[in-house]
């Protein structure tokens, strides 16, 4: 097809499913996983607790939980549930898995610093993300079973993952950024077409939290490493 042909397509032409089908994905994965969501909730609460405990092992364990969240939401939700109705979602799913791999590699090769973080400034937005964003899918669908939990739903996971920028050091964080930006743009465009306006909050929050992650990261002079 020529460039002019591509320009004649609208964004809507690339979204091959309706909002009902998309929101049902959250309901279905929650029904299929029940009661293992409890582990996701424990991880969501446990990560900030571990990040602020003394010692490198605790911080590595927190980052390790974030790795699992990237992989689980990417492979579980995006590849397993969303991919069959929307092929770009499967690609993003594998990118989420790779993001988890990248974070694990950074952790193993010194890409996660042990510097002090401002606990209040980190924990407040973290809790807003993991406790607040999941309810947007509920508001949109009218079904509480559509709760978009951290570690299961990719949007909530990416938003929380954006804050983890605060513990990643220089070059690693630049490798960590592209997926956050691309996923936010992709999901925002999709929610715009589906007219699921509540869900638009998640990608916008993700982009803001990337900035917050940079802002929260300790300056080199203040680093304990």
């Amino acid at each position: 097809m020529s460039g002019a042909d591509w320009l004649s397509y609208s964004l809507q032409d690339f979204v091959m499913f309706g909002p009902q089908v998309f929101l049902r994905l959250f309901v279905r994965i929650n029904q299929d996983l029940w009661p293992w969501q409890v582990l996701a909730v424990v991880a969501a609460i446990g990560i900030p607790v571990l990040l602020f405990r003394q010692g490198r092992n605790a911080r590595c364990f927190a980052v390790g939980l974030m790795v699992v969240a990237w992989v689980a939401s990417g492979y579980g939700f995006l590849v397993g549930y969303f991919g069959p109705i929307n092929w770009p979602a499967a690609w993003f799913g594998w990118a989420f898995v790779a993001q988890g791999g990248l974070l694990a590699t950074a952790m193993l090769f010194g890409g996660v610093h042990g510097g002090a973080l401002s606990s209040g400034r980190f924990v407040a937005p973290w809790l807003i993300v993991v406790c607040g964003l999941p309810w947007l899918a509920v508001a949109e669908s009218g079904q509480w079973q559509a709760l978009a939990l951290f570690g299961i739903a990719p949007g909530t996971t990416a938003a929380a993952g954006a804050l983890i920028v605060a513990v990643i050091t220089g070059p690693w964080r630049w490798l960590y950024l592209p997926l956050l930006v691309l996923w936010s743009l992709f999901s925002a465009a999709m929610f715009w077409v589906l007219q699921t306006s509540w869900l638009l909050v998640t990608p916008v929050a993700t982009l803001l939290l990337v900035g917050a992650g940079f802002w929260l990261s300790p300056r080199p002079a203040r680093s304990l490493d």
Binding site: V15, M16, F17, G18, Q20, V21, R24, L25, Y81, P84
Partner: peptide
């Protein structure tokens, strides 16, 4: 069937 029948493995749908 564009959009309307693309419901994946959702048995209910």
């Amino acid at each position: 069937t564009w959009i309307t029948f693309n419901v994946g493995g959702d048995e209910q749908l």
